[in-house]
């Protein structure tokens, strides 16, 4: 029996090792493609183990840093603003919704909930955002339409409901205003759910490429993912730089490996940072109770 158990454990271990390899493999392929020697690549294709390792793609990316670093800057700025505003606004709507005696609470619940069921769709949203609000080619188009996601509002509301009412009552007796109670008591007590929501909204913003696809034509405002997408769609962006480079006497630009190096540079930080917060992402999924 003991022996058999060990064998089963071993087999499961092998299965998972293989599974993990399958999951990691595409990451590895991307990395090694970016490190391939352009000459070897042209002759044999991407190498699973690049030999010789060639950093010229990275040299090129980091020599022409302006574009990618600007995209990084834009992405970080709007992601952080979106995250902060989102947590604030969603806490501000979630808290009143926990108060049973507040009239209109059910109407507000439905008002939020209905947007999960039905939406205007791409074109009407575009007309409102671009034509009436003139948000195209501004950084606000990354931020404002992303605010107040009802799903997260209900998640926060459920957590807020768990805060003992006696705490709120005693604060009220001490003369605390509702704002004091929310920002001073409820929110500090609800850090886990707020962190979860903050991370999810940050991840969404960080990976946002279709907003730029629809609303941004100004290259200076490209988000990181959209810059990457446009390079994929249109290698000419690199080629234009290539022309500029050849005019100044630089060597030929290895477009295939540069593409891959760009992807690695864009994916790297997310790959390293987000798994540290995995606990919160998992929590966000297993908090099922969002009902009102």
């Amino acid at each position: 029996m003991q022996k058999k158990n060990k064998l089963v454990q071993l087999m499961i271990g092998i299965i998972f090792s293989m599974l993990c390899l399958i999951i990691i493999f595409p990451f590895w392929l991307l990395l090694s493609a970016s490190l391939s020697d352009p000459g070897v690549l042209a002759a044999k294709g991407y190498q699973i183990v690049p030999n010789p390792i060639d950093f010229s793609a990275y040299k090129y990316v980091f020599k022409n840093t302006e574009q990618i670093f600007r995209a990084y800057g834009v992405t970080i700025v709007y992601s952080v603003i979106t995250m902060i505003l989102n947590v604030l606004l969603m806490a501000m709507i979630a808290y009143p919704l926990t108060r049973n005696r507040l009239r209109g609470r059910n109407a507000m619940n439905f008002y939020l909930y209905f947007t999960m069921l039905f939406n205007g769709g791409l074109v009407p949203t575009y007309i409102v955002v671009a034509k009436y609000l003139h948000l195209s080619n501004t950084i606000w188009v990354y931020i404002l339409p992303m605010l107040v996601n009802p799903w997260y509002v209900f998640m926060i509301r459920t957590f807020f409901k768990g805060v003992p009412e006696s705490i709120i009552e005693s604060a009220t007796i001490d003369g605390a205003s509702e704002y004091n109670i929310l920002f001073g008591i409820i929110m500090p007590l609800s850090k886990p759910v707020l962190a979860t929501v903050a991370l999810f909204t940050f991840l969404n913003s960080w990976n946002d490429w279709n907003t730029a696809l629809i609303y941004i034509t100004d290259e200076k405002l490209y988000s990181l993912q959209y810059l990457l997408q446009s390079i994929m769609e249109n290698i000419n962006i690199i080629k234009q730089n290539k022309m500029a480079a050849s005019m100044t006497g630089n060597q030929d630009i290895p477009t295939e490996t540069v593409r891959m190096a760009m992807a690695v540079v864009a994916a790297g930080p997310a790959l390293i940072v987000f798994p540290f917060f995995q606990k919160y992402f998992v929590k966000g999924l297993t908090v099922g109770a969002v009902k009102g």
Partner: peptide, 27 residues
Amino acid sequence: ILITPFFMSWVIVAYMVYAILNSNYGY
């Protein structure tokens, strides 16, 4: 490890798929 791909944008994933499927150089 299994959750890591969830954090990647579809654009990054598209690059990986491209590295595998590209007809001239793909794996």
